[in-house]
C-alpha cells in the first residue's frame, strides 16, 4: 500500500518532506511500548503509536520501520520531525485513535507485521 493511500484512508497529514511519499508499505503494527516494537516488529512496517517523543523515531531507525503514524492527534516536536527528515522516515499524524486507525488499515488489507513473540528478531 502506498503511503498516500494510508494518509487518505486515515485522514492523516504527512509531517515530513514529500520525497518519501511513494514508499510502499506492506504491513503494520500498533503499540505504545517501544520494547514491544523492538521485540516483534518485522522490518519495513508501518508503526502506529500514541507515543510521541524522539525515541519513537530512534526506535523506528533501529528496527527498520518504514513510517510512523501518530494516532490520537499527536504532533511531534520540531526536533523529532528534523530527525525523521534526516533519516528519511515519513511521519504521519491522524486525529483517529489507535483502534480506528488500526481497524481501517486492517480492513483495507494492510497485514499485521508483527512476529510471534518467541521468534528470532533478525
Amino acid at each position: 500500500m502506498k503511503l498516500t493511500e494510508i494518509v487518505d484512508l486515515i485522514n492523516g497529514e504527512l509531517l515530513t518532506q514529500e520525497e518519501d511519499y511513494k514508499k510502499d508499505i506492506t504491513g503494520a503494527m500498533g503499540a505504545d511500548l517501544m520494547s514491544d516494537v523492538l521485540a516483534s516488529i518485522k522490518p519495513e512496517a508501518a508503526l502506529l503509536t500514541g507515543l510521541c517523543n524522539p525515541q519513537v523515531v530512534r526506535t523506528a531507525l533501529i528496527a527498520d520501520i518504514r513510517t510512523i503514524i501518530f494516532v490520537r492527534g499527536k504532533n511531534p516536536d520540531r526536533e523529532t520531525i528534523r530527525i525523521a527528515n534526516e533519516e528519511q522516515i515519513p511521519l504521519i499524524t491522524t486525529s483517529l485513535g489507535m483502534f480506528e486507525a488500526c481497524g481501517i488499515l486492517h480492513k483495507a488489507g494492510l497485514l499485521s507485521y508483527e512476529l510471534p513473540a518467541n521468534d528470532d528478531c533478525a
Binding site: 505504545d32 511500548l33 517501544m34 520494547s35 514491544d36 523492538l38 521485540a39 528478531c121
Partner: peptide, 16 residues
C-alpha cells in the same frame, strides 16, 4: 508512560 519499562529490555537483548 514514555513507552519504556515494560520489562522486556533484557529479554530483547538476549534474543538478539
Amino acid at each position: 508512560e514514555m513507552g519504556f519499562g515494560a520489562g522486556m529490555g533484557l529479554v530483547n537483548i538476549k534474543r538478539c
